[in-house]
Amino acid sequence: MTFTRYVALGDSFTEGVGDDAPDLPNGVRGWADRVAAALAHSRPDLEYANLAIRGRKMGPIIDEQVAPAIAMRPDLVTIYAGANDILRPKVDIDAILAAYDAAVERLAASGAHTVLFTAHDPGGWPLFSGLRGRFAIYTEGVREIADRHGATIVDFWRMPDYRDERLWSFDRLHMSPAGHQRMAIAVLDTLGLEHSLVPLTLAPAPDLTVAQQRAENRRWIKEFAAPWIGRRLRGTSSGDGMTARYPEIGRFPG
């Protein structure tokens, strides 16, 4: 397969949060940019748009991103949506999957090759392990949607690499640069595309004492968990007031 017009849709996962790049729009890079760079290496005429915005739930992703994406006439679309819904105290998983199904049907009907992602398996992560059942139901639903519409599925759930904390950023919710690089490789490999990306070299895992681990947990609670919970209680989002990084399709800026 070869692609010349690639549009990425979704939330912080696709926007690139955790892969800091102060010189780029919204201060991040991310796996989608890395995929686009790899595609542009063999197709310098590649055009790219990234409409993802952090914090977006399923409804806003569909309402704000799907129609503009279709209007760009892409031949490749990646979309990841639903995680921010599942993280809320209450969620109707059947309803968000039904909405997702209808959106993917529209994308596939446009002629674009569509790529979906399962959720990451949160088992073993204290903050999110209690939501493992929700994520498992969502993941099976996404598999069914992909089957129904002939979409490619990147199986995040079955990537054991992400048990390594070094593939996650300090907030323990978003991928680190190494995590984004690994995801870019997974997308390209799943599509069967040749590329030269390799995993980033990881620094040795820190060997923390119990006291140091507790101090790090306290810092995480103060700097990330408390503000994150506060936003959920207030009904606000980290993406409020933000715009898409590359809202118009054009020659890959890298």
Rank of each mutant, 00 (worst) to 15 (best):
122 P>F: 04
11 D>K: 04
52 A>T: 03
118 T>P: 02
221 I>D: 13
183 M>W: 01
166 R>F: 01
246 Y>H: 12
168 W>L: 05
87 L>Y: 07
68 P>Q: 08
158 R>G: 12
168 W>P: 01
32 A>C: 08
196 S>A: 15
209 T>P: 04
10 G>W: 02
249 I>R: 10
54 R>G: 09
198 V>H: 12
195 H>W: 00
217 N>Q: 10
4 T>D: 11
195 H>L: 02
78 T>D: 02
209 T>M: 09
6 Y>S: 04
35 V>W: 00
13 F>M: 08
130 G>A: 11
208 L>K: 12
154 V>D: 01
154 V>L: 03
8 A>V: 09
204 P>E: 13
186 A>M: 05
87 L>Q: 10
189 D>V: 00
168 W>I: 02
123 G>A: 15
110 S>G: 14
27 G>C: 06
222 K>E: 15
250 G>K: 09
254 G>I: 09
176 S>K: 05
2 T>P: 03
88 R>F: 11
82 G>V: 08
184 A>I: 01
77 V>F: 02
136 A>L: 13
196 S>E: 15
13 F>G: 04
175 M>N: 14
254 G>W: 07
167 L>G: 00
107 L>E: 03
185 I>W: 00
71 A>Q: 13
27 G>A: 07
234 R>Y: 06
205 A>D: 13
234 R>A: 15
171 D>I: 09
179 G>A: 01
77 V>T: 06
250 G>S: 11
174 H>Y: 05
175 M>T: 15
29 R>D: 11
87 L>K: 08
87 L>T: 10
53 I>Q: 03
210 V>A: 15
58 M>Q: 11
158 R>E: 12
98 A>N: 10
7 V>C: 07
203 A>F: 10
134 R>S: 09
234 R>T: 12
165 E>G: 12
225 A>K: 11
76 L>D: 00
116 L>P: 01
143 R>P: 02
151 A>F: 02
252 F>W: 13
29 R>V: 10
215 A>E: 14
213 Q>K: 15
183 M>I: 02
6 Y>P: 02
118 T>V: 04
215 A>M: 13
9 L>N: 03
190 T>V: 05
100 Y>M: 15
248 E>P: 11
158 R>I: 06
152 T>G: 01
127 L>C: 06
222 K>M: 15
62 I>V: 15
89 P>Y: 05
205 A>P: 10
7 V>A: 08
69 A>R: 07
105 E>C: 14
41 H>Y: 09
113 H>D: 12
28 V>A: 07
14 T>G: 04
197 L>Q: 03
65 Q>A: 06
172 R>W: 09
159 M>H: 08
49 A>E: 05
166 R>I: 02
